[in-house]
Design a protein around this nucleic acid. Structure first.
Lengths: 230, 230
DNA sequence: AGTTCCATGCTACCATACAAGTATGGTAGT
DNA sequence: ACTACCATACTTGTATGGTAGCATGGAACT
């Protein structure tokens, strides 16, 4: 039996039912509330969300396109297992793109967003002290997002986000086991300073080290959660 | 009235009907057989393909996710216009990733695929003489694909392909107006030689120049086909 | 005991009917 | 002539019934 929290239809329009189901399922999948391997059936989900099978099926199609679920014709649908190979490739892509962006940021970055980075850093510092893992994860994402925004590469960021669903799941796993945020905060801070000083080489180097941390212990995660990986 | 070629259902299984409709629509869109802005209705397409609305709708959902069509609720669906902003970003992403890959290729590349690159180059040379634009386009894609394959980054390649649907449409436009393949062939050849000689810097530089050609005349295309762009 | 076969219940897939929102053209009123 | 209104014919969104394919378990046979 699957446990799926029903959607809040209180607000008159969170888009169509299909969108709502899609968004909620995706959220639960990347948060590992629906662990990899969980069987999903159109019917069960439809009764859980109190909609018909059509919008559920629609959401399955979209999730399948992002490799978040695996549809086996006439057999069933399951939350897809995390493919370590894909995690590594996603890491590769993200590294190349983020390094390029941070180099761009050193050449030109708007003042207001620079200030926003600074505010973000202050919040991060607080979270590190409070050990607020959840919030820190959000701030981390926001920090990188602002970098892309400042370089007018938000489309690139959204592509990364979409493609990185698998990488994100492993990152969620990671923070559930080893929440050492202090070095990450320091790297963010150093990156900020490098951008201010327009030191491309240094910013590039820090970003490289920074992102390599995310998957440093992928093998450890595989051994700790063998059922979640392919 | 829309003209859509009916699918060949001769072979018993080209996947599900939904997949078939999706694949065929996508092909026609990226080939500009369905120009940007063309209105598509679920009903019309369903009768054209001789299936019900359900699989058509399914394909619309997938195409919308790739920004190839634009669905306006209760109003209609159209082949999406090409967004120049997105074309530039796609170009940016592709440049970063391909340069990184070609540098990797200089460090390590399997012998058999190196031979395949060589065969590909020979075919390109023929096509340049024959002015076989269509085939040359395929060979160009294959050449770059082999690079990713040799670096074990095929997942990255497929992501690029998906994301680059818009970029590809503008590239198709481009070759319809200015089919000068000779310099492209020479760049491919020089890249091959740089890989063989493990000259990372040179390979990187050539790739950069090579990819910049694709969008050098984007503004020209915009003026020539204003209806196709956003 | 071990193997083959088939009934049963499951799944995703597809077709169809209905609902709800939107653009359009004609009409009545000013 | 112009404007406001409304019937109508579209559109996408949703619900539901039926179909074909697959897994499972039990029965029949060797």
């Amino acid at each position: 039996m699957i446990e799926i929290k029903t959607i809040e239809f209180a607000r008159p329009l969170a888009g169509s039912a299909g969108n709502a189901v899609y968004a909620e399922l995706k959220r639960q999948i990347v948060n590992l509330e629906l662990p990899p391997g969980t069987p999903l059936s159109e019917k069960e989900v439809s009764v859980a969300f109190n909609v018909s099978r059509t919008p559920v099926r629609e959401s399955f199609v979209r999730l399948a396109q992002e490799d978040l679920v695996l549809v086996l014709p006439q057999r069933g649908t399951r939350v897809s297992l995390i493919d370590p190979e894909m995690v590594l490739e996603a890491q590769f892509m993200r590294e190349q793109l983020e390094r390029a962006v941070v180099r761009l940021a050193c050449r030109d970055f708007p003042e207001d967003l620079l200030a926003e980075l600074n505010r973000n850093l202050a919040l991060q510092k607080e979270c590190v002290q409070r050990h607020d893992t959840r919030r820190m994860f959000e701030l981390d994402e926001a920090f990188h997002r602002i970098l892309f925004e400042g370089c007018r590469k938000l489309g690139t960021w959204s592509v990364i986000q979409q493609m990185n669903a698998n990488l994100n799941r492993s990152r969620i796993l990671w923070l559930s086991t080893d929440p050492q945020w202090t070095p990450l905060y320091e790297q963010h801070r150093d990156m900020y300073e490098a951008i201010v000083r327009r030191d491309e080489a240094k910013a590039d180097r820090i970003m490289q080290e920074h992102l390599s941390l995310s998957i440093a212990n992928l093998p450890v995660l595989q051994k700790k959660f063998p059922n979640y990986f392919k």
